[in-house]
Simulated scan of single mutants.
Amino acid sequence: MSYVQPGEFDRDTNYIEDRITRDARDGWPVEAGRYRLVAARACPWANRTVIVRRLLGLEGAISLGLPGPTHDERSWTFDLDPGGVDPVLGISRLQEAYFARFRDYPRGITVPAVVDVPTGRVVTNDYPQITLDFSTEWGAFHRAGAPDLYPDALRAEIDEVNDGVFRDVNNGVYRAGFAGSQEAYERAYERLFSRLDSLSTRLSSQRYLVGDTITEADVRLFTTLARFDAVYHGHFKCNRSKLSEMPVLWAYARDLFQTPGFGDTIDFGQIKDHYYKVHRDINPTGVVPLGPDPRGWLTPHHREELGGRPFGDGTPPPPPPADERVPPLAAA
């Protein structure tokens, strides 16, 4: 049991652990068209599921619901949809899908969430497992040429990398941003940048985190790096260095951003709106910064010189469906 020191941000990691599997062990069988993934573009945890769904070509099997970038204390809302109602689930708040299954659900109404369309009930919000199951349980619905994001031979190494990245980077930026004491903030800050330095060393001689292709590990690190300069550097006080001042990680992140399935899921406007408007405890005015200029993400990265094959023996995904496209990058 881990001990949380005074002032430390303590993330609630008790999620709905039901899984959608081929053998329906939890009562939820893999079935095309049955489930809807609800995943706000602003959220890094939800962004992972959108990327993996894109890379594997599951758009035709699992539909996508997109809440807007802001929410209140009750839940995420579908304010981007006509009438503020999700066109498939027929609800205005994600909370309704949670309450349809668990009356007075006591925990946070989080994204990503997978909802059973016929019943309108949430199935799971266990985001680390959702993407792994997309890779391992939904194979019958993968596109031709889909990459293997969680190969058997590399799973132990991927899991080990993911564990450190989660503790010190994915969750580390939140531990810094929501620290309740100077000491807790400094501990989080030091752990974050120590891990980023070690990742920079690792990535200085190899194109991807594990093996010579994109894996689940790259997806998990990317969604934090994509938000680093726009949000975490200033809003969360992770300001030793900008991502754009860390040459290896900046090139690595641009390489992924320019890979189909990654950058075409990123909406910097929604990302900034979420963090700066929702977190009024650390940004009371709700003022959203104009910068940084996102066009730097499209500059050459030269990571191909390290070799590697992004999709292994597979192929890039096709462009996203018209109703899932993000705005093109423009100057801030």
Rank of each mutant, 00 (worst) to 15 (best):
Q129M: 10
S135D: 14
L221I: 01
P327W: 03
A226E: 15
A39F: 06
A332C: 13
F102K: 09
R240N: 07
G27R: 01
A156D: 15
T131N: 07
S2E: 14
L199S: 04
I158K: 12
G314S: 09
P118M: 08
L209P: 12
Q206A: 12
R295N: 08
D12K: 05
S200A: 14
W28D: 03
W76Q: 08
D212N: 15
P289V: 03
S75E: 11
L225M: 15
E216C: 01
M246N: 08
A251L: 06
H279Y: 11
A144G: 05
G164L: 06
A322Y: 00
L196W: 02
K242M: 13
T259F: 10
I130W: 03
G263Y: 11
M246S: 09
C43W: 03
T259E: 13
R103G: 12
L199D: 04
T223E: 09
A24D: 07
T215W: 07
W297R: 01
W76K: 05
G180C: 03
D313Y: 03
H274V: 04
V248E: 14
D81T: 07
V288M: 11
F193T: 00
Y276N: 02
I214A: 05
R202Q: 10
A217K: 05
D79E: 13
G84W: 08
N14A: 12
R207N: 09
R53F: 05
I51P: 11
T259M: 14
Q129T: 08
S92N: 15
G57M: 08
N170P: 00
V326F: 04
D218R: 03
P328C: 07
E304A: 14
G263E: 14
R240Y: 05
L298Y: 02
D255H: 14
V30K: 01
P29C: 02
E190S: 09
Q258N: 15
P44Q: 03
P294G: 09
E160D: 15
N14H: 14
F141W: 13
L209C: 10
Y275D: 01
G286K: 07
R202I: 06
Y150D: 10
G83C: 09
S181A: 04
E183M: 00
W297F: 08
G172V: 00
V122E: 10
G7M: 09
S244I: 01
D313F: 06
F141M: 02
G65I: 01
E324W: 05
R191S: 06
P69H: 06
D197S: 11
Y105K: 06
T49S: 15
R54N: 15
V50T: 13
P321F: 00
V38M: 04
D133E: 04
R309P: 06
G308Y: 13
Y185H: 10
V161T: 10
R19N: 02
D10K: 13
E324V: 00
D273L: 14
D218T: 02
E183V: 02
V169A: 01
R220K: 09
A42G: 14
K277D: 04
S194H: 12
V161R: 15
Q5A: 15
F99R: 13
L196S: 02
A24L: 02
T119N: 10
G90H: 12
P260S: 12
V115R: 08
G180W: 01
D104N: 15
P284A: 07
V326K: 02
P6S: 07
E245P: 08
A46L: 10
D212C: 06
L249Q: 07
P284F: 07
S244H: 09
V169L: 01
G120Q: 09
A188W: 00
A217Y: 05
R303A: 08
T110M: 11
D18N: 15
Y208F: 15
